[in-house]
Design a protein around this nucleic acid. Structure first.
Lengths: 318, 318
DNA sequence: CCTCCGCATGAATATTTATTCACGCTTGAT
DNA sequence: ATCAAGCGTGAATAAATATTCATGCGGAGG
């Protein structure tokens, strides 16, 4: 009987606080109890399920998918971009916009940004960044060499340079091909002062933006001809590769696939990547599902930006 | 496009705050925005309807009825007691319990409590009060004379005395019949030192507990024989009386019915009652609907305690 | 091209809310 | 009956949240 009365009191307090918008001290005056008691009653109201807060996802946002992925993979942040269709153009564009927003919103003075060149989503990000005056990034570091052929080299360079310009930082280029013919030539390249200077900066990166590559042939033709041979790719696949970040291949569990190929890549290693405080992975599209899942399982990235279709697939993985 | 992104942000913040229970400063750290911005986003989340708080009434509580009555009559507080059946016994008991709780919860040191004797609900209240040690009321004042016959006088006296005892106050009795034969005899009675002492204390009352009487014959037989004649009651009815508080009759609009009868009552006037900071009216039952409505319309009481059936009827009045 | 206005931001601060603390009541065991 | 443990309370205080203020950006209109 007293229980009912107590519930009534709790309900009344909750009503005054949440619906009428009164402050606790007002309520305490009206009901003649102390403010401390009002606070306690409100806490009980939540505990007893008398007040319930529900969050309605506005159209175009996918908080449920985001939390599903966060929880499933134990990752700290997931951004699911809205996207009309499930094709690469639409997906990459949506992800790029979201990535641009994330960069704009979270860039801080003195940040050192790393970017893996050669990602369609990062390209899209570039196109959607609003020039930022507010803060001044220290520098933008290219995390992966350019592609073998000189014209392609330019692309990678441009991505880094443009980004640096947009966020008021110095570009720090990695003037090298991304894949060398042998571990020896890689070692020699890395001893070049310009290359070494950049590699030495890797440990200073505060935020890295990286694309996630899939094993299946990509539109960018990254691997074909310019980088790895078909045979090499087949070997990687045989060893369990599901995708790559900065051309560092990893398995379904996100374990790096060490070996000769690993030693021929000029760019940040996955170990170095782990040491970066915030790694933002951007990727989407049907081909990428397994690649993304691997990166998530291996905790290779801290933040995932993807599209709603890919997010759906990720959340449904067994 | 940016709108979607903003909504996503708002939703995410709302989620972290309301569902995950993070504090704003934590959120601001994770999302890398200032705590002020988090606060602002949360406010927007409510404004945009992204977070909704709903209050679920626990069974046995009737917040909707309460607010309906509060709003309809512009009264500051309504307590609707749970009650299984719509008969006087059940109703009076439920109201008594609720009144007792209210008294216990809101009694403050030094309060001067007024009680109109001869109310079945107040009798019930007495039986349900837990002795209070915490605070010490200054005194309990009897607001209405006892009924004519001596044995009944005792009842009124006892109610006041028992209450005073329960809340550690001094009883201040009104040693007089509640209705005299004529205005003159009333004036003489009131000049009696004991009676006058009590009447003089009326203005010091901080909280008054009053029953609300109905016109139709009551179980207590208050009016018949002991107080007013059938003819007098009929006259009152003809003049529009719908009920009484402390035997002060009033109309459907809560206007006091002045006149000879009014001058023959020994007890607090409705004018004096208006001056009391907090007047708590207790009443319920089918016969009382119109009486309560009148008291509410005339703002004769500040707090109404009733049962859910009566509350329903009150809320449905045109 | 420049200037002014409105808007958004974060730091500082004011306000509000939650927690701690000390105390008194109740309860249940001895 | 007496005492200790546990609960609930309000006052004081700590913590969290909202608001103010000053500043800088972006766009409209000279």
């Amino acid at each position: 009987m007293s229980r009912t009365n107590e519930l009534r009191m709790i309900t009344r307090v909750a009503q005054m606080y949440h619906l009428e918008g009164l402050k606790q001290s007002d309520i305490s005056e009206v009901l003649r109890i102390s403010q401390a008691s009002v606070s306690r009653l409100l806490k009980r109201a939540e505990a007893e399920g008398i007040v319930r807060v529900s969050i309605v996802a506005p159209s175009g946002t996918y908080p449920d998918l985001e939390s599903a992925i966060r929880e499933k993979f134990g990752i700290s942040e997931v951004i699911v971009a809205d996207c009309r269709e499930d094709n690469d153009d639409a997906v990459f564009s949506a992800i790029g916009v979201a990535a641009a927003h994330l960069l704009e919103q979270t860039l801080e003075d003195g940040d050192v940004i790393g970017v893996s060149s050669w990602s369609a989503t990062l390209q899209q990000m570039l196109d959607n960044i609003h020039p930022i005056k507010r803060v001044r990034a220290e520098r933008v570091i290219q995390l992966l060499g350019g592609i073998g052929v000189p014209s392609a080299q330019i692309h990678a360079t441009q991505l880094t340079t443009r980004l640096a310009h947009l966020i008021n930082g110095e570009p720090q280029l990695l003037p090298a091909p991304c894949v060398t013919g042998s571990p020896e030539s890689k070692r020699i390249l890395v001893s070049d002062p310009h290359v070494k200077a950049t590699v030495d900066q890797f440990k200073r990166v505060t935020t890295a933006f990286v694309g996630i590559g899939a094993m299946a042939p990509s539109q960018n033709l990254i691997y074909s001809g310019n980088t790895f041979t078909q045979a090499e790719l087949e070997e990687l696949a045989r060893r369990g590769a599901v995708g790559d970040i900065c051309l560092r291949f990893y398995t379904a569990d996100g374990e790096p696939l060490a070996g000769e190929i690993y030693e021929r890549v000029v760019g940040m290693t996955l170990e170095e990547l782990q040491a970066v405080p915030r790694v933002i992975g951007t990727a989407g599209g049907k081909r990428k599902t397994a690649s993304i899942a691997g990166a998530l399982r291996g905790k290779l990235i801290d933040v995932l930006i993807t599209d709603r279709f890919t997010a759906e697939r990720l959340s449904e993985l067994t």
